[in-house]
């Protein structure tokens, strides 16, 4: 399960919308071993493509060093698909080189709805995981009843069926 703050998700979606129709990409860093992503780092897509993304190698070195200096690790690596679903492509799977990261995909194919999904990709094997979006700004006492699997301050996105 990936648990992540609503404000970070909003920033990632805004980045993906801004770069649409090109793919957008970036990282969310968090303290080593915490599994808590806290620092959103939008990255340049050096490929500037609608169907491919690649971190700029020098920007990546700078950002990775910075994480090292702050005792952080890349907990989430995200990119957008701009015409297809938020599921890892063959290319994504073949090139996934950070087995400890949550690979998040955002689809911007629909202008009005957000599609966010998260995966582990290890040795070419893709495993989807639920995403829990935490919203600390919501007053937990403001809502009197809520759906199963949700609370006033969190929304759980289950894995999509059929995969």
């Amino acid at each position: 399960m990936l648990s992540i703050d609503r404000s970070i998700i909003d920033a990632i979606i805004a980045h993906a919308r801004r770069d649409h129709p090109d793919e957008a990409c970036g990282v969310v860093a968090g303290p080593v071993g915490s599994d808590t992503p806290v620092r959103h780092i939008p990255m340049d897509n050096a490929a500037r493509s609608m169907t491919f993304y690649e971190f700029d190698s020098m920007e990546q070195l700078r950002v990775w060093r910075e994480m090292d200096d702050r005792d952080e690790e890349p907990l989430v690596i995200y990119h957008s698909h701009t015409a297809t679903e938020a599921y890892p492509s063959r290319t994504d799977t073949d090139l996934a080189g950070v087995p400890e990261a949550h690979y998040m995909l955002v689809s911007t194919r629909e202008p009005d709805t957000e599609e966010i999904r998260s995966y582990r990709i290890v040795d070419g094997v893709v495993t989807e995981e639920p995403v829990q979006i935490v919203d600390p700004t919501v007053d937990p006492h403001a809502v009197q009843s809520y759906m199963f699997g949700q609370s006033p301050t969190t929304v759980d996105y289950e894995c999509s069926p059929g995969r």
């Binding site: 493509s49 491919f52 993304y53 063959r90 290319t91």
Partner: peptide, 16 residues
């Protein structure tokens, strides 16, 4: 040594 971070929707079979 860092793994490049790259991927994308489709088409880049040559990448693999």
């Amino acid at each position: 040594i860092l793994p490049a971070v790259a991927g994308g929707a489709f088409g880049f079979a040559a990448a693999a």
